[in-house]
Design a protein around this nucleic acid. Sequence first.
DNA 1: ATGAAAGCGCTAACAA
DNA 2: TTGTTAGCGCTTTCAT
Lengths: 351, 351
Amino acid sequence: MPATLKDVAREAGVNISTASRALNNAFGINVDTRKHVIKVAARLNYRPNQVARGLVTGRSNSLGLLISDIRNPFFAELARGAEDAAFNAGCDLVLCNSDQNAEKQMRYVEFLLAKRVGGIVMNSVTPLDEDQQDRLRAAGVPIVLLNVSSADRHSPAWRFSSVVADNLYGGEIAAKYLIGLGHKNIVHIAGPRTHGAFSDRASAFLKVFRENGLPKPRVVFGEHTFGAAYQSTKQLLGTDRNITAIFAGNDVIAFGCMRALMESGIRIPEDVSILGFDNVEMTQITSPPLTTIDQPKYETGKAAVEILLNMISKDGVREPEHRIIGVHLIERQSCRKISGAAVQDRRTAKR
Amino acid sequence: MPATLKDVAREAGVNISTASRALNNAFGINVDTRKHVIKVAARLNYRPNQVARGLVTGRSNSLGLLISDIRNPFFAELARGAEDAAFNAGCDLVLCNSDQNAEKQMRYVEFLLAKRVGGIVMNSVTPLDEDQQDRLRAAGVPIVLLNVSSADRHSPAWRFSSVVADNLYGGEIAAKYLIGLGHKNIVHIAGPRTHGAFSDRASAFLKVFRENGLPKPRVVFGEHTFGAAYQSTKQLLGTDRNITAIFAGNDVIAFGCMRALMESGIRIPEDVSILGFDNVEMTQITSPPLTTIDQPKYETGKAAVEILLNMISKDGVREPEHRIIGVHLIERQSCRKISGAAVQDRRTAKR
DNA sequence: ATGAAAGCGCTAACAA
DNA sequence: TTGTTAGCGCTTTCAT
């Protein structure tokens, strides 16, 4: 239905390849011819068929973004950063929600591969088994991983690029902050243990206690959703009423905790302190505003597609690139000092 | 680099068209031949090139989703509904953030058209001028509009399909609810006036006052962002300290208002009541939990791509399809009764 | 049931 | 500077 290059060429009275050159402003073409062709193209409302172009050039100018769920505000921000970067480079972004489910994730990958996307930004690959990971690697498409575990990243088999927040450092400052506030009965409500970001935060968190000879806090792994966190907290409250602080694996989990606490008539931070992770926009408007650990989400998405684009351009075999995004504590009002405790001076600028 | 159909055919010792038939489980092919071809294809890790297939079949199995900003939780939910529906139909979704900017929106459309997407789900087209709208229509691609104004929808020139929340009814119940609670000094902080959803809510809201001979509430149009709403509210507070209720154009706006109120030491709902719109997940965890008007977001996105898919399948000229999604009040704790007022019994089940 | 051949819309040598 | 030609990887007549 739409006009083709052939139509333009015929209408302009030139050869199809001349028309192609005119429209792609290549060298070696008469200025007037070009002007004429362009005018004809405009009149016919010609739009170059990217599908056909992709077939011959072998490049598809589309990228895949494979995350667990766009409804998670963390991923929404990240996706926006990714999309902006892609758009600036003339690429489009195909959105895929895997729900962190290995089978679904793999189906999406196959899907993207079949579409011949130029590259894929995806959640950590850890839910995938060895076979699946091998197939991924064999596909030969540039891949940038998000939320990789540092453990994975140092494994010799690791050949993908990655961009991750400094979750180890984040877990560490979380522990130190809560300990510094004088809390003794702390629980860490984490996300799925298979998820690099959460496992790193948890292990670094625990490490601080271990290294200081402090009793090991309880850790509850689960889905990183509002509902799951709500349930976990409710359950926790049934067995232990002496908790004074909760370190949530991320802000959404923190929100779920807060909800459960509120419903049980427990005050924040008077009765229990809550510390989040991510610094999602909504943390500013909860009551009390959530103290949390900020990680630049938009920049993470942006960096991921920049690396991807970079890998695509130099399409030889390249060393994978790893980028670590810094995190820092944002003190708001959801954590309180236990009386008598010495508080460290690690106050951070409130943004 | 990846194996092609030709490779499979050669390796299997059959003609390329036989291989094609075998893989597409068409009729008229020997069962054993098929099995053999399939096995070879698997061994070679063959993945049919959708780009090439699209070129010959003329259909691209990708859809475009053009919204203002995925970071808006409303759109994130909607996008998820859209993506799920697309995936179930074997299509992929290209994500585009227009920032509700006409020029950017148009560039994205051109982009999607050049990719020969099968159809586009997009925000209302109202920021676009007549010329642009005509070009859109002329492109001949199925389009489903979101957030259309009812005014637009009844205009004879309107030839696009649409799915919209019942914003008129929403604005009406908002007004009646606040009036019923006894509020006299109400402000409506709306989104952009060019945006159908917001203009409908505002006009229906005002209509109730007009029809009841009540003084017209002030309406402030602006961006539908946290920051803009925060600013508007701050400004409002500078000029008028007697406000008792705010009807926010959507939940994100409501969050911005709440933040500004909190900072000014104004209590919700003791000093001022706040009513939102959308029933975003976070409304449950604000303090107090936000009373708001629910609209099914996931379903909206889902319905939009279903209509799109429907239009694509019957690719003749078809009557545009319009779907209206019901809304209803969710009473939580951000609105209070002004003493002495008669409260209507319009309590709705808390979900 | 299978093969041969044309062509989708475009780019990219190679000629002229 | 322009035209001719050969594909990119696939589907789809039309023969066989």
